[in-house]
Design a protein around this nucleic acid. Structure first.
Lengths: 324, 324
DNA sequence: CTGTTAGCGCTTTCAA
DNA sequence: TTGAAAGCGCTAACAG
C-alpha cells in the first residue's frame, strides 16, 4: 500500500503538496498538480481514510440509523441517502434499531466511535433514552426526537390532501386506519385527516393499530364488517402497507375497488403502484428529504432551526373513484 | 473527548495498560483492570475507532455492497448482515451498486479506504470490471464473481424442489418464468427446474425476463394467453417478485389460484406470505448465509475454498394445489 | 506557492 | 505484569 510519502517521492514534491492536491486545494501550481496526479495514478495510491479522519477528527462517513431496513419506506429512504452521500464523497454507516430505543442509543454511540461527519436518524416511535452527547452534526427524520433538528414530510398537510380528495369525490361515510396512538407521526396524520374532513362536515370512523400490512387487514375487516348501508365508501390509511393489507381483505370480501370502496394510502412506496388496483396515495418527497438531510449534516446546507416540513403530494391512481 | 491518556492518568496506570484492558487482554491484573474500567466509566471514555484502525490498519467495519437496497431480497439480507455484524462488534458500511459493474467497482474501492475488516458483496448480475486488489477479506454472495469465495443458496437444488413439488401435485403442463438468460443465477435455477422436470418426463414452457414484478406480469400474460386446454396448469418463477407480478395478471384474467393455476416462487421474501393467496415458494436461508459471510470475513469462521452452497427449502403455502 | 514538522489517539514491541 | 516509546498515514500550522 503506497502512502502519501511514496507519491511525494515519485513526484519530487513534499507530502504537504500531495496532501493539498488530495484536498483539491486551489493554491497548488497546475503543473505540479498534474505531476502529482500522475504519480497517484501510477502508484495506484488510495488515501487512508482512517489516518485522514484521525487527523481531522472527522471521517468521510455519514451514520444512518433507521428502525427497519426491510420496511420499504425506510429502504427507499436509505437508497436516497446512500446515493446522495456517495455522490458527495461520503460513505454511509448503516445501523438498524429495530424500533428499540435502547438499541438505537447503543447504535448511535457505536457510530460515534468512527467520528462520522454527521448522523441521520429516523428515531424509534417511542423514544425513551435521552439524547446522546456529541458535537457531530445530527438531524432526525420523519419524527421529532429531543431537540434534534427535524426534517420531515408534512404529515398533517399530507393527510389533509387525502381527506380533501375523498371529499371531492363525494364520499361522506369515511373510515381511517391510523397508526399507534402514542406516536407523533400517527397523531399528526390523523389530525390532518380529521380536521380537513371536519371542514367538510364529515367525521371519520377511526381505528388504530400498527403501520404494517397485518394491521391493515385486521382493522380493515373491523371497519368493513357491517351492513352495506353503514359501511364506509372510502377508507384512508396512515401507511401504504396498511392500505395493501386492506386491499387484501377487500378482495376476500368480494368488494370492488374503487366501485364499492375507495382507498387512499400514505407514503407512496414503490409497491403502491404495483398492486391491483394501483394505489392512490400521498407521496413523501423522500429524495428531497434525503438531500436536505445529507446537506445539513455535511455542512453543504443549513441545519434547520425549526422543524423543516416538506410538502406531501397526492398521487391519484386507480384505487379511488367517485362515490357510487 | 477524553482519550486513553486521560483514563491512564485517572487510573494511575500507563496508556499501555489501558489499551490492554480495552483489548480484553488477559494479562492484566484484575485489580488494575477494575480501576481502569471505573475510570473509563467515570470519564465516559469512548475509544477512537479511527486511531485504533489506523494503528492496526484494520477498522471494526464490514463493507456491504449490494445491487439495490429497495429490493426486498437484498434488504432482508442486509438486515441479517447488520444484525450479526453489530452483535459481533462491527459496524456496516453500506454501498449500493445499482447493478452497475462500474459503480460496484468504485464503491468497493471507496470502502477500501476505510480499511474494513472484511467486505461482503452481492455482485452485479453482469460483472465486467475485473477483481480489485486488496488484502481485505472478501466474500461474494448469491452469484460468483472472479475468484472470490462464494457463499450462496443452492439455486439449482432449490429450483429442483419447486419442480418436484409441482410434479408431485400432478402437473404436467408447466410454465417457467426465468430471469435474464445471461445471469448465472437464472441459468442455475432454470437448469435445476428443467432437469428435475425432465426426470419426470416433462418439458416446461420457458419464458425469460427480469427478476422484477413487471416481468412477472408481462411474461405471465404471454404464458397464459392461449386456449385453456393448452394453458399451463402451473407456473414456477425465478423470483417471488415475478410470482407476485404473475398473481396480478392471473387476477386480471379471472383465473383462480390454485384452482386454475398453481404458482411457486423463489426466495421467500416477507411479502410472499402477505399476498393473496399466500405464496408457495423456495426459501433461501438468508440468516445462515449472512452469518457465514460475516464469520468468514471477520475470521470467526473459515473462508470457503470452494463455493459454499446452502440448502434451499420448499415452503408450501396456498398458491399451489393438485392439478384439476 | 511549497516544504517541514508536530502531532491526531491508539497499539505494540521492547525492557524492566 | 506493567511502563516507555515508536510510530500508523495524514493534515495543518508555520516558515520560507
Amino acid at each position: 500500500m503506497p502512502g502519501i510519502k511514496d507519491v511525494a517521492r515519485r513526484a519530487n514534491v513534499s507530502v504537504g503538496t500531495v496532501s493539498r492536491v488530495l484536498a483539491k486545494n486551489e493554491t497548488v501550481n497546475p503543473e505540479l498538480r498534474e505531476i502529482v496526479e500522475t504519480a497517484i495514478r501510477e502508484l495506484n495510491f488510495r488515501p487512508n481514510g482512517l489516518a485522514r479522519g484521525l487527523r481531522r477528527s472527522r471521517s468521510d462517513m455519514i451514520g444512518l440509523v433507521i428502525p427497519d431496513i426491510t420496511n420499504p419506506f425506510f429502504a427507499e429512504l436509505a437508497k436516497h441517502v446512500e446515493a446522495i452521500a456517495s455522490a458527495a464523497g461520503f460513505s454511509v454507516l448503516l445501523s438498524v434499531s429495530n424500533d428499540d430505543p435502547q438499541r438505537e442509543r447503543t447504535q448511535v454511540e457505536s457510530l460515534l466511535n468512527s467520528f462520522p461527519t454527521g448522523i441521520i436518524v429516523v428515531p424509534t416511535h417511542r423514544p425513551s433514552a435521552g439524547p446522546w452527547t456529541s458535537d457531530v452534526a445530527t438531524v432526525v427524520l420523519d419524527r421529532p426526537f429531543a431537540d434534534y433538528p427535524l426534517i420531515s414530510v408534512d404529515h398533517y398537510g399530507g393527510a389533509g390532501l387525502a381527506a380533501r380528495h375523498l371529499l371531492d369525490l363525494g364520499h361522506r361515510r369515511i373510515g381511517y386506519i391510523a397508526g399507534p396512538a402514542d406516536t407523533p407521526v400517527s397523531r399528526q396524520r390523523l389530525a390532518g385527516f380529521r380536521d380537513t374532513l371536519a371542514a367538510g362536515g364529515v367525521t371519520p370512523l377511526v381505528v388504530e393499530g400498527q403501520f404494517d400490512y397485518a394491521s391493515g387487514e385486521t382493522l380493515g375487516r373491523a371497519l368493513l364488517d357491517r351492513p352495506a348501508a353503514k359501511r364506509p365508501t372510502a377508507i384512508a390509511t396512515a401507511s401504504d402497507q396498511q392500505a395493501i393489507g386492506l386491499l387484501r381483505v377487500v378482495n376476500d370480501l368480494g368488494l370492488a375497488v374503487p366501485g364499492d370502496l375507495s382507498i387512499v394510502g400514505f407514503d407512496d412506496i414503490s409497491l403502491a403502484s404495483l398492486v391491483t388496483p394501483r394505489l392512490t396515495t400521498v407521496r413523501q418527497p423522500l429524495d428531497a428529504i434525503a438531500a436536505r438531510a445529507v446537506a445539513a449534516v455535511t455542512g453543504a446546507g443549513a441545519i434547520p432551526a425549526a422543524p423543516e416540513l416538506q410538502p406531501a403530494m397526492l398521487v391519484v391512481r386507480h384505487s379511488t373513484g367517485p362515490v357510487a
